[in-house]
């Protein structure tokens, strides 16, 4: 039992080390290669453009639901006029970055992990090495960089459409004063809040993309059975670990940002 616990602890620490090295080499191997812009554009298309519909839909409904829920809570204190503030702050500070990140992991992160995993199994990654092409630079770095661009953009879109969703349910359906809704938002949300939201998205993008790529890249080692089963195993694990990482990082970031 103790042996097992210690063993798992050592495993966890060494996995963390591997991930860190993987991150370093993905940063290091971006510059020394050709056609960088083309690869980033391609990766932004996969991670960013394809995730626009789901981000907007989820953002809208999140805002709608928040508007409803918070309205009923706030009515109890007869402070419906605070609705705008409550919706905007909870979306910008927490829900926006976290939901967007989870959504992108579900759509793009899993795809990325599976694709790299299959490329590993089809020896395409080995083929890259024998062609003297750095596989991490070719497959991973552009995606990590694209994520750093896409996550904040999609989070911003989520925030805006979420606030409009709150407006729809709170103002248009439940009759909160439109002026109070917006004034409260403009008064309470500071530029700092928006910057924090973007910072969170940035960090989530970096971490989740790395985790997903890492799981796929080492599917032959990480999975209990290599092969198609293994790819499905590492893809699932990529999504699960990414989700945990998002929430854990959110906790850490929030506590830092609140202290400041």
């Amino acid at each position: 039992m103790i042996y097992k616990l210690g063993n798992n602890g050592i495993k966890l620490i060494s996995e963390l080390g591997e991930l860190t090295l993987f991150a370093l080499s993905s940063i290091k191997s971006f510059l020394p290669q050709n056609h960088r812009l083309e690869k980033i554009v391609r990766a932004i298309y996969e991670i960013g453009v394809r995730c626009v519909p789901i981000t907007l839909i989820v953002g809208l409904f999140t805002g709608l639901v928040l508007g409803l829920q918070l309205f009923y809570v706030l009515t109890k204190f007869s402070s419906e006029s605070l609705l705008g503030q409550a919706v905007a702050l909870s979306i910008i500070l927490e829900i926006g970055p976290v939901f967007t990140a989870i959504m992108i992991v579900g759509q793009a992160g899993s795809a990325l992990s599976a694709e790299i995993g299959i490329q590993r199994n089809a020896e395409q990654i080995d083929a890259l090495s024998t062609m003297k092409i750095n596989p991490i630079g070719f497959l991973v770095s552009p995606r990590v960089l694209a994520a750093l661009i896409c996550f904040p953009i999609l989070t911003a879109a989520f925030n805006i459409i979420g606030i409009w969703g709150g407006y729809l349910s709170g103002v248009a359906m439940l009759g909160v004063d439109s002026g109070a809704y917006w004034t409260r938002i403009f008064e309470s949300v500071s530029g700092q809040n928006v910057a924090d939201s973007m910072l969170k998205a940035f960090v989530f993008g970096f971490l989740t993309t790395l985790v997903c790529a890492f799981q796929g890249y080492y599917t032959h080692i990480k999975a209990s059975v290599p092969g198609s089963r293994g790819v499905s195993e590492t893809t699932t694990r990529a999504v699960v670990i990414s989700s945990i990482v998002i929430l854990a990082a959110d906790f850490v970031l929030t506590s830092f940002l609140l202290v400041r």
Binding site: E123, D126, I133
Partner: peptide, 24 residues
């Protein structure tokens, strides 16, 4: 040369052959 060829299935034949030149 790999047993299973290890061609990139998202690239066409031309792009596959050009890959080492383009990248290195």
């Amino acid at each position: 040369m790999f047993q299973q060829n290890a061609l990139f299935d998202s690239f066409n034949v031309f792009e596959n052959i050009a890959l080492p030149l383009r990248e290195t």
